[in-house]
Design a protein around this nucleic acid. Structure first.
Lengths: 342, 342
DNA sequence: TTGTACGCGTTATCAC
DNA sequence: GTGATAACGCGTACAA
């Protein structure tokens, strides 16, 4: 109909409905402030023009975007997927949109993406783990963007977080390992540099070893990327050691899956000849054979609670509490007593 | 130093450097248009104030955001992860930021998120598959936001896409299945409603059956969600049929993994008693036992090419070509000849 | 209840 | 090379 095929603005709607832009704006944002009759007229104009608010303008005027940003280390495996999906679903219910970025475990990239999200008017940010430059936190503070740490919970840290105690969780698993009789323990960890989750899991093993009368320094440790292939490589290295470790504890299920695959290739029987453990209890853990003994992390619960807390912070209803999510051991088949000494 | 702790603006920088806002803007966007001396002064002011451009304002003024949006059906498994990660990496190299949203396979949610991304000034959009309301495409056209379809390639569709021919790919796999001697074929497919990839894969099997002299209607088909658990359930149903199918072709590796898990539980040997196939060749396919015979999709290549094409479209260097990515059969262990008739 | 008018922080088009 | 200044589209005091 109209000759102008460009995007309609508030002004166009106002003209079409024979009211002012202010009234149209009110119809959209606080409908009860406008009388029924005019509202109907306005809404009809909105409908027929196919009007959509311009967010950039709205953000600039209202200083509020109903957008939450999340920067995760990777989308390349399922570690963050489940929790994030729940996080998003919960946010949606509260009227927020989630925008996700992946940093590929690169602090520089993360920095960049935090700025990108903040610049785009994100009302709040979800970050994975504590470890990052202090500059970033002060940047967020200056821009008054509330941020919440997830996937980590450290009672010592005085920063809001919804996560789990990686150290304790891995400690409990190590306890199970040691109780089963293992003494020559090896670990395949994710890169600990700049990754407090990975570091805490290593610390958890060491601490428990010490408490159990083992030498924490006797832990054979390999750090590598969280990829199946890398887990396989590391496992191969460990199996060429003399004497061989009797158990390989992995920083997560992905690494453990790699280890199991390699074990199959090398003809090493798990758990008869060597035990393997994981962490996270993603679906993979139940698929592999033998099924993984691992630590179950209730990712969905974490995502849900993180969403609630972050929206509360954004809306000024919370100064940022910290919530600890409980993990639990899942005993499957990949952990057993060590083989008898030859 | 300053008493005002709020976020610095272009104006603040201009004052601090003793220049106009226009000059500051130029320093940031086209540095060669400003003389070295002033630029240094400006950049110093930018640095010391910790200035970050306000994107909302920038978008509104420049009508350009260097942001690409992607809406994927789910983050809950690895199907889209790998391709998307590569997509993002490539975009980054070209100076774009990727923002991702997940629709949970819900068209309504997808619609909403497309609007959200467009409203936030996305320069271009990556969409998965063709199937969506025509209204959406006209909305994008009206807003002049270029969009590219991925994960699907249909020579018939006259819409830019970077993907693979699901029908043909699955057809080739079906050919291998039939060549191996299978006649009682069952399929566990993802929901085909509103999912052209799933539909095409089913069509591929049926078409190949017909071409091979089998009755396409004899295909036993179960549609379910792309979840391991669902794959397991469907497999159980199929195994209770009389006569049993001799092969279960799955719509993707996730479903196939579920089928294999259930087979293990039921004590049914794969591939001796029944064959199973997948689609995608994600890492999972190599992890399960027996390893999956499946269709390899070069997700990274697809992500890379999609990024190149979409940026070209955004920058006006392309009207939107379509690129077909080649898939290939991967023969592993889960497909074998059918058992001899009892 | 509704309208007027200004401000939000940039970019871009002019002059100078 | 640089500086005014007019958009950009919306929210919101304030006035009517």
């Amino acid at each position: 109909m109209g000759k102008n095929r460009s995007v309609p603005t508030l002004n166009d709607v106002a003209k079409a409905a024979g009211v002012s832009t202010a009234t149209v704006s009110r119809c959209l944002n606080s409908p009860d402030q406008v009388i029924e009759a005019t509202r109907q007229r306005v809404m009809q104009a909105v409908e027929s023009l196919g009007y959509t608010p311009n967010f950039a303008a709205r953000v600039m005027a209202a200083k509020r975007s109903y957008t939450i940003g999340a920067i995760i280390p990777t989308m390349d495996n399922a570690i963050f997927a489940r929790g994030l999906q729940e996080f998003q679903d919960q946010l949606r219910e509260s009227g927020y949109t989630l925008l996700v970025s992946s940093s590929a475990y690169d602090p520089e990239v993360e920095w960049e993406q935090i700025r990108a999200l903040v610049a785009r008017g994100a009302d709040g940010l979800l970050l994975i783990g504590y470890a990052r430059d202090a500059e970033i936190y002060s940047y967020l503070e200056r821009h008054q963007v509330p941020s919440l740490v997830a996937w980590s919970y450290d009672p010592e840290a005085h920063r809001p977080s919804v996560g789990f105690d990686n150290l304790n969780a891995m400690g409990k698993l190590a306890q199970a390992v040691i109780s089963a009789g293992h003494q020559r323990i090896a670990m395949i960890s994710g890169q600990t540099l700049g990754n407090d989750r990975a570091q805490s899991r290593v610390d958890g093993v060491r601490q428990t070893m010490a408490e159990s009368g083992l030498d924490a320094n006797s832990l054979t440790l390999i750090e590598t990327d969280y990829e199946i292939e890398k887990g396989a490589e590391a496992f191969q290295q460990l199996m060429s050691l003399t004497p061989r470790p009797t158990v390989v504890m992995c920083g997560n299920d992905v690494l453990a899956a790699g280890a199991l695959r390699e074990a199959g290739r090398l003809g090493i029987k798990v758990p008869e000849q060597v035990s393997v453990t994981g962490f996270d209890d993603i679906e993979l853990a139940e698929i592999v054979s033998p099924a993984l003994t691992t630590v179950h992390v209730p990712h969905r619960e974490m995502g849900r609670k993180a969403a609630r807390e972050l929206t509360a912070m954004v809306e000024g209803n919370s100064d940022g509490r910290s919530i600890c999510i409980n993990t639990r051991l899942v005993n499957r088949c990949s952990l057993a007593r060590p083989p008898r000494q030859p």
